[in-house]
Amino acid sequence: MSASKKICAGIVLYNPEIELLKKNISILEKQVEKIYLFDNGSSNNNEIKNLFNNKNEISYFFNKQNKGIGYGLNWLINRADENGYTWCLTMDQDSICSDNLIYEYKKHLKDKRVALISPFVLNNDKVTLNEYNNMKLPEVTEITDPMDCITSACLTNIPIVKKLGMFNEKLFIDFVDSDINCKVLNNGYRIIQINDAYMIQQMGKGHKVKTFEWLFNKTHKNIFRRLKVATVYTDQRLYYSSRNSRYIRNTYKDHGRRTGLGFMFAYYCYFTLFYPKNRSRFSMWKAIIKGFKDYKELGD
C-alpha cells in the first residue's frame, strides 16, 4: 500500500454549521481517499446524513449521546485501524486546512519516531493568511511544548497512539490534545509542525481587544498578537478548562508552561478583564473554581 493509501481523515461532529462543514470536507476529499464522520448526538444529524449518505468515500456514524471529543477521536482511530490505515488526520468540524496539507505531511512519514504532525495554525485572526504568507518560517518546527499541537489538522500515527493508550475519554473536552501530546513527548516520540501547510481555526468566539490590537500594530511584538483576540468560552467550557488543566499538570511531569497554575490563573484574569461586558464574572469564576475542585473526580 502506498503512503497516500495509508492516510484517512476523521471529524468528530456536534451540531456543526453545515456550510462550513461542507467546505471543510470538500477540501479533505481532494487529499484523502476516506473520511470518517463521528457524530456526537447532533440535533441536525438528518441533514448531515442526507448530505453525505451517497458518497462512498465518506462514512457517517451517529451516536445518540454526546460522549465527548476523546471518545469520538478514539472511535475514529479504531475505525481507521480496522480498515488498514496507519495515519489518521483528525479535523475539527469548523476548521479549514490548506489544499497542500497531506502533500506536505507525506514528506515526513518515514521517521518511525514521529507520532503527530501538525500545520501552522491561523487562530482567531491572531495571524492572518496574508501575514502567514509573508513569514519566513523553517520547513519543520520541532514541538516540545504539549500545548503547541492541537488535534485539528493533526496527522496521527495510529500504531503509536494505540500503544500509548489512546485519547483520554474522561476529559470530555479541553486539554484532550494536551494529554495525548504529553504521552507522546514523555515517551520519547516526536511531534513536528510543517510550516508549509496551514489550518484556519476558530476557537470559541473571538473578541477583539482594541488596546492589544493597537499595541501589536505599533510594536509587532508576538505577545500582543496573542492578546489582541480573547477567545470567548461558555462557563461550561471554562469549567472543563479549569478541571482538565489541573489534571494535566498533576499527571505529567513535563506538561508545559501554559498548563501551570500561575499561567492558568493569569489566563482567567485576562478573560475577566476583556470578556464582553454582558458576561457574568461571578458565574465565570464559579465555574472555574468548581472545575478546579472537581479535578479529583477524574481519578488516576
Rank of each mutant, 00 (worst) to 15 (best):
N100I: 09
G72R: 01
I117N: 03
Y189P: 02
K106W: 07
T234G: 07
Q202K: 13
H207Y: 04
N195H: 06
M147W: 11
D39P: 04
F265E: 14
H220I: 08
Y239N: 01
F52E: 10
L273S: 03
N157S: 02
T219G: 06
W285C: 02
T219E: 11
I102E: 08
Y60G: 08
K293Y: 14
Q31F: 05
S241G: 08
S95F: 05
K253C: 00
N134T: 00
Y268I: 10
I25H: 09
P138M: 07
C269M: 15
T144P: 06
E17H: 10
I96Y: 02
E57P: 03
F167L: 07
S152T: 13
F212L: 02
Q193G: 10
Q236S: 00
C8M: 01
K55R: 15
I58E: 09
N15A: 08
I18R: 00
G256H: 13
S98A: 12
S118T: 15
Y275E: 01
Y71A: 06
G299W: 05
N50R: 15
R281N: 05
E104C: 13
E169L: 04
Y268V: 03
N50Q: 07
W285R: 07
Y36C: 01
G68C: 00
Y189D: 07
L298Q: 10
I35S: 07
S178Q: 12
L116F: 04
N130E: 11
F62M: 12
C8G: 10
G204M: 14
L73C: 14
R190I: 09
K106D: 15
Y132T: 08
L227S: 12
L51K: 15
T86E: 15
K162W: 13
G299H: 05
L185M: 06
N66P: 00
L101V: 01
G262F: 04
G72W: 05
N134Y: 01
E19T: 13
L51C: 14
K290F: 10
D177L: 01
R79I: 10
M147D: 15
F274G: 03
K296L: 06
C182Q: 09
S178A: 07
N134F: 09
T211W: 14
N24H: 07
L20G: 12
Y198L: 08
I69R: 06
N66S: 02
K6M: 06
G204E: 05
C149Y: 01
T151C: 10
K205R: 09
